[in-house]
Design a protein around this nucleic acid. Structure first.
Length: 684
DNA sequence: CGACCCCCG
DNA sequence: GACGGGGGTCG
């Protein structure tokens, strides 16, 4: 390993009160398996500092102390740290900002305009809000580079677990990697002496003082002192901080970006930690510091409690602090919030979070959107924006490798917002055909026509087009082990070259997805695997680090239990020995994939071309479409007759008769998210 | 599945 | 507030 050892042999000899560690050999194998129940687990959250602003700094090659803000129309969406010293924040106007900081550079984001083949940086884009749309592409590109470097810096796949959490954040489960390092550094841990007894406690770590280097260490809980013997969880945490420091260094040196990080036993704490000290710092929350760290927070800062749920908790218990909520008994939490949410809440404010790091770094959907100020009022105008959205999305699809058939979205989705109402329409993207910009455009027009047809659509305040349901394609090079098996590779080549058309049948060799397996879910404290075999039971052996709740903790919203994690510690252990560069080395495409050519014999949706709006409308909806134009004409007459009237009408007019789906519950009704068995809260 | 909702930065 | 992404439920 390249990072430096953080241990110095101890001059002070501590009294070895306990010969044994709190932790067992079982915990060690859980560590290898990245089990969410492992008390030695180490998770990192890495967060780029003022990311968009840093992107612009790097792109423009500005000196590091240059104050800079990223501008979007009349607002600022990111402010770098040099600028923050002047008291700038995100809710400030540009003129205020420039008054506070005369040297501030306000760099407008890149934009698309109609007819463009690509986004561009444009000096006075902000004057053209009505005709341009923002592009965040430059930031996605940088994000990809950084993510790739992070992955490169970490060991290859079996040991690597990286979750892209947003454009500027990742979670990393360091457990498996740390396990392998642990065995190398402490050979005494390698292989449990009593092979038949995983409950045997580990030997105490050798007597060393831990060198925490420049990391920000969180103050310890009241019951702990720095003089206490370190145990293995301190060691794993320290190794985690070394790894994270080396990752941050690489990002800094090679790509010029600074980031902040949190290292802790779970995602929630890691995330709180990364925000603890910024910029360009990392914070370690040792297990013995968790209570102290948590008690200082408002619980609304905790992931999932920042929104309506958090508000409800505040309302129910009349406090927003972790400290005070800790006094509320479990039963009360359950009574007021429901069993699942209450149980989850009880745990989370005690620093327990069993959610998994979801090893996913690719996006699942992409969206292009625009808010209209002023609103737009005609189908034709909407269609012009659709063309821009499609250009945007298509170019991003190309980057995703859609033309090479690496991945491909299954559905296309249009969201439409009127003043109050928001409606969306979705359609499958015909498979078996080559993806094309034109096809997406036609689909999107059809969707807009549908929206327009089935209810009042104007004035429209927002449109967004997205594609999603990405599926791995035929030439995918991201098999389970990061490679294709030989036989499969040949098949892949064959099927790729022959312009696949499955005619609805099961595609051959359906790509195994890197199973998200319920993903993000908040795992249980204990997994009572219904068949109570010993294959995988968890902590609690010695009452150490025991989950606090007597019953499963589930997510705030909608619990969905992940299945007990498979114990592949053997595989991992086997893997750790090897040098192993058998990862996801990007295999170059099998052949210089000329984009698929369109098949002519494809059965396509029968449409007619509306001469009034150029939309291809399914014949089955022709009459409705004509109705739409009829309604629109009436509307226009209406508008022309009195502008003043319209202004009042827009709020005073009774709700249109709703066809299709109604909107869920009334907003603000104080309902906890639709959750099975969830009760309505009393306070509303 | 399609439509809608919630949470996050 | 604008834009872009994640997750989930319900019928």
């Amino acid at each position: 390993m390249s990072f430096s050892q953080s241990f110095t042999s101890s001059p002070l000899s501590l009294t070895p009160q306990r010969r044994k560690s709190k932790f067992t050999f079982k915990h060690l194998s859980q560590l290898a398996a990245s089990s969410t129940a492992c008390p030695l687990r180490v998770i990192a959250h890495i967060d780029l500092d003022a990311f968009y602003a840093q992107c612009e700094m790097v792109r423009l090659g500005l000196p590091e102390d240059q104050p800079l803000a990223v501008q979007q129309w009349q607002g600022l969406i990111a402010i770098n740290y040099p600028a923050r010293k002047f008291g700038l924040n995100r809710h400030i106007t540009i003129t205020e900002a420039q008054k506070l900081c005369p040297k501030l550079i306000c760099q407008h984001v890149a934009t698309w305009k109609e007819g463009d083949e690509k986004w561009a940086y444009n000096e006075d884009a902000f004057k053209e809000m009505a005709t341009r749309k923002v592009s965040l592409d430059p930031y996605r590109t940088e994000s990809r580079k950084i993510l790739a470097l992070v992955k490169e810096t970490l060991p290859a796949v079996p040991l690597q677990k990286v979750e892209k959490a947003s454009i500027d954040e990742v979670f990393v489960d360091l457990s498996a990697q740390i396990h392998s390092i642990l065995l190398k550094r402490y050979p005494e841990l390698d292989g449990p002496p009593p092979y038949d007894d995983p409950t045997e406690n580990l030997p105490r770590p050798s007597n060393t003082a831990l060198n925490w280097d420049t990391d920000a260490l969180v103050d310890l809980d009241a019951s702990e002192t720095e003089d206490d013997d370190p145990d293995w969880d301190d060691i794993t945490m320290l190794i985690g901080s070394e790894i994270v420091r080396s990752v941050r260094l690489a990002v800094r040196e090679k790509l010029k970006y600074t980031c902040s990080a949190g290292v802790a036993k779970n995602k929630m704490l890691a995330k709180l930690g990364s925000g603890h000290k910024k910029p360009n710092a990392q914070t370690i929350i040792r297990n013995r510091a968790v209570q102290q760290f948590m008690s200082g927070f408002k619980f609304t800062k905790i992931r999932n409690l920042g929104g309506k749920l958090g508000d409800q908790v505040v309302a129910a218990f009349n406090t927003d602090t972790v400290q005070e909520l800790l006094e509320v008994p479990l039963e009360q939490l359950k009574k007021r919030m429901g069993d699942d949410t209450g149980g989850w809440l009880y745990n989370v404010i005690r620093g327990e979070d069993y959610s998994e790091v979801n090893p996913r770094t690719e996006i699942k959907s992409m969206l292009s959107a625009k808010s209209f100020r002023p609103t737009i009022n005609e189908f034709e105008v909407g269609v012009r924006w659709l063309r821009i959205f499609v250009a945007d999305i298509f170019s991003r699809l190309v980057e995703e490798g859609v033309l090479e058939n690496k991945r491909r979205p299954k559905t296309i989705n249009l969201h439409h917002r009127q003043v109050m109402q928001t409606r969306s329409k979705q359609a499958p993207i015909p498979q078996g055909k080559a993806m094309s910009e034109e096809m997406l455009f036609e689909l999107s027009k059809t969707l807009l026509a549908q929206v327009v047809v089935d209810g009042k659509a104007w004035p429209c305040a927002n449109l967004s087009l997205s594609v999603g349901g990405f599926e791995d394609g035929i030439t995918g090079n991201k098999g389970i082990g990061g490679f294709l098996v030989r036989g499969e590779e040949a098949k892949a080549m064959l099927s790729n070259s022959s312009e696949v058309d499955y005619h609805g049948a099961e595609p051959p060799e359906k790509r195994r997805k890197i199973d998200d397996g319920g993903s993000n879910k908040f795992l249980l404290a204990r997994e009572e695997s219904s068949r109570g075999d010993s294959e995988q039971e968890f902590v609690g052996d010695l009452g150490v680090i025991e989950p606090h709740v007597d019953d499963p903790s589930i997510p705030p919203p909608s619990g969905q239990r992940s299945p007990p994690t498979v114990d592949d510690s053997e595989n991992v252990a086997a893997a750790t020995g090897l040098p192993r560069s058998l990862g996801i080395e990007e295999v170059t495409p099998l052949h210089s994939a000329k984009p698929n050519t369109t098949l002519l014999d494809q059965q396509s949706i029968e449409t007619y071309l509306c001469k009034r709006c150029d939309a291809h409308v399914p014949v089955t909806e022709q009459s409705e479409h004509e109705d739409y134009h009829f309604a629109k004409d009436l509307q226009n007459e209406d508008r022309n007759s009195s502008t003043a009237l319209r202004a009042t009408q827009s709020t005073a007019r009774p709700a249109p008769p709703r066809r299709g789906r109604g909107r869920g519950r009334p907003p603000g009704s104080g309902m906890v998210r639709a959750e099975k068995g969830q009760k309505r809260l009393a306070f509303g």
